[in-house]
Design a binder for these strands. Structure first.
Lengths: 194, 194
DNA sequence: TACTTATGTGGTCACTGTTAACATCATCGG
DNA sequence: CCGATGATGTTAACAGTGACCACATAAGTA
């Protein structure tokens, strides 16, 4: 009568790659990319410290995969948000979605723009990023009739800057102030005063 | 004739604290804060791995000191740049100086806004940062007669976003394009179309 | 059934931040 | 002048990391 021992834990994990990505994402959002350790991740998944290397060349490679997933989500949410009657309204809606994404995925957003990853210069990451920004470029182009690059860059800078400042807690939210309202107020006002 | 031996290296360094800061700054600007190692730094200064700990509690503490120095430089350069006939002109000049500082001290600027440091929440760093931003707050307040917070935040977001995007190489500089001109074009256009 | 490939393990290396115990020096009170 | 004291550096160690190797195990396939 072999009493059921604590489960012989199958030698193979089943879907380690996905588990690694999910676990890494969880660790990322609770402590930043710097505090994300491959060994700790392996420990969490009850797997040997070397196991992750079967699925990712190195730590950067794992982070890159996370960032790529981030850019895909980001891109999708931007497209989804681009609703409105006028091009300007659509652009504003996208800007709002941009900031919301940053706030809802703080560490992921930071990772996506991390210089660490930029230094690695992985082509697949570049492509994911380019694809995401292309969506934005088109929206700004159709929004400003002269195809003005300056106006597009202004809009991008304003939205990106707002996202980062909010992320860093530099912009103090006042008592009883509505965050979404503040965001809209900041990005909504068009330079031309239309 | 005692041939001058390779110098018995005095037991004490003389001004290690300063040397640490300078060396750290050099390492910072060539590889980012992540690649700044206390041991490597000690090695560079021909000093034992534990020596730095006589001057800084830990790595974060060293980085904090660098960031504080950064905020002081930053603040000084902002004040120095605030010249012009109208408040708007002064604000634009400060915005330009803001972006220039970021470009001239890329890694330092990143460090100053690093979440790693923000997490540590050192009071002296907070004070240095607050002092620097206070300069900006005043400039934006005097620039917009209604003391409009929204306008101030818009300006800040635009300038900060531009700095970060340039830092990250997200904004492509076109052939024969003048960087300072581009910066001025982006931050110079006032929302009111003045 | 035998061969091949994918996946996970254990052990090891070089490196890091950090601390504790000890050495050296400069300075100041007697 | 001299000895105590505190500041500064050194050596040795610890835990933790990313990364790599040879090997073990499973799964798939000819």
């Amino acid at each position: 009568m072999s009493t059921s021992l604590p489960k012989p834990q199958p030698y193979h994990h089943g879907d380690l790659r996905r588990a690694l990505l999910d676990g890494a994402m969880a660790m990322l959002e609770s402590g930043g990319a710097a505090n994300l350790g491959l060994r700790e991740l392996a420990r969490l998944l009850k797997v040997s410290p070397a196991a992750p290397y079967r699925h990712f060349d190195n730590k950067i490679s794992l982070l890159e995969a996370l960032a790529v997933r981030g850019y895909q989500q980001f891109s999708a949410q931007m497209k989804e948000a681009a609703i409105g009657d006028t091009p300007e309204a659509r652009l504003a809606a996208m800007g709002h979605a941009y900031v919301r994404f940053a706030l809802d995925n703080m560490e992921l957003f930071r990772l996506m723009f991390s210089p660490e990853l930029k230094r690695a210069n992985r082509p697949t990451l570049r492509m994911a990023a380019d694809a995401a920004f292309e969506t934005l470029r088109i929206a700004t182009a159709t929004s400003s009739p002269d195809g003005g690059r300056i106006a597009a860059l202004q809009a991008w800078a304003k939205v990106h800057g707002l996202a980062i400042l909010l992320l860093d807690g530099q912009i103090a939210i006042r008592e009883g102030e509505n965050l979404d309202g503040l965001i809209r107020a900041i990005i909504g006002t068009e330079p031309a005063g239309a």
